[in-house]
Design a protein around this nucleic acid. Structure first.
Lengths: 220, 220
DNA sequence: ACCTGAACACCGTTCAAGT
DNA sequence: ACCTGAACACCGTTCAAGT
């Protein structure tokens, strides 16, 4: 921090009058703020995120942010929204890559848990209560519903191909979501730390047992 | 807030020299701080908890707390520990009340989800990452493990009475815990708000389907 | 031992002023 | 439109000083 780089001078710039040294607009400051916030959260946790530091790292005043977000909470809500978008893409990718059906479904479950474990702080923000607010960000609601819908679609398809019982698909999806979300959260929160458990093997076990049940079969 | 009650005077006190008006010790300030913190969290959320307000509400300086807790994080960790204790008691009570076995197990699941929904902010603190710290509070780890053990015990007993397959009980318990935890968190976080779902019916559905499986039975 | 008040180094947010 | 610096009302935490 003690050695500041000298700002380079006009010497390095071409003569054909480019736009003057951009000090007032950053192309897309909103996007830059979002990415820097996500990066900080990932590196230091949610509590480590300060608007002042974000601004400083972007070479911008600490109040510039208020042109793009109502307040810190709105910024976090937008970070959460981006997270649900990334999650949905990861789920669909896994489902397609493994050829849908039973292996595709297991891959989706693994992809979900791995996403959370790879981005624990970001994942915490996604489920940090921004959806439970009196008036939640509609874009956040939509993106969260989109991720949920990917799961519903997969279950409906499995019902049609005779892999899954014809229960209410929404109820089924909520249950499956609860399982992978629960595994993800418990893993992130360190509840499997002192046991011989890791997210992948527990997820694989859970997905299999969800299909066949944990109850003892009376009929051989 | 504008009308403060007048402090009562010495007139009301007996002559037999009781201990002077307690201004320096509060019997059990530590306990009082814990309860006031839990109350505030419940009423205003974790972000609404300030040490200054807690101290003020207890008629104590804002730094008195540091005699009993290392810092704010230690206070929250202790609140989390109390939460796990309450949760364990609720689980065991439900299990016993319904006569163990299959109905006892369903009652445990319902008790878990209901505890979280009744104490959403407290529940969030319990899973707020205090266990995932580099050096977690040992008392917190112990209390969390205790709640988990109640679930393990119930599953072992169900295995012995032929109700549950003889999978690794720890792996089974992790899976069940993930389900109820997932349902609880999603409910708290408002993900079931705009659907016709409530915690109880989803929990009952999940517990039943966990037993029998969601997969289509090929053999009739 | 337990508690206090003053002080420190931070926050998020507002706002009049600049370009 | 977009950005700035100063100012405001808060924080958690430290510490010398009191009983």
């Amino acid at each position: 921090m003690s050695t500041l780089p000298l700002y380079d001078t006009d010497m390095a710039r071409s003569r054909t009058s480019r736009r003057p040294r951009a000090r007032y607009h950053h192309g897309d400051l909103r996007r830059a703020l979002l990415e820097e916030a996500a990066r900080t959260i990932q590196a230091e946790g949610v509590d480590g995120l300060t608007l002042r530091a974000v601004g400083q790292r972007l070479g911008v005043s600490r109040t510039a942010l208020y042109r793009h977000f109502a307040d810190k909470s709105a910024l976090l809500s937008a970070v959460a929204r981006d997270g649900f978008r990334m999650l949905r893409l990861a789920l669909v990718e896994a489902w397609e890559r493994e050829g849908r059906g039973r292996p595709g479904f297991e891959a989706m479950g693994l992809a979900y848990v791995r996403f959370a474990i790879a981005n624990p702080s970001h994942y915490r923000v996604m489920f940090g209560g921004f959806l439970a607010r009196p008036t939640p960000d509609p874009e956040l609601s939509e993106e969260a519903a989109g991720a949920f819908q990917a799961l519903v679609d997969s279950l409906v398809e499995q019902q049609q191909s005779g892999l899954v019982k014809r229960d209410d698909p929404l109820q089924l999806a909520r249950m499956i979501w609860a399982i992978v979300h629960g595994i993800a959260m418990l893993a992130i929160d360190g509840h499997f730390a002192h046991e011989g458990a890791d997210g992948d093997s527990l997820t694989a076990f859970a997905i299999e047992r969800i299909r066949t049940g944990i109850g003892e079969l009376r009929a051989g």
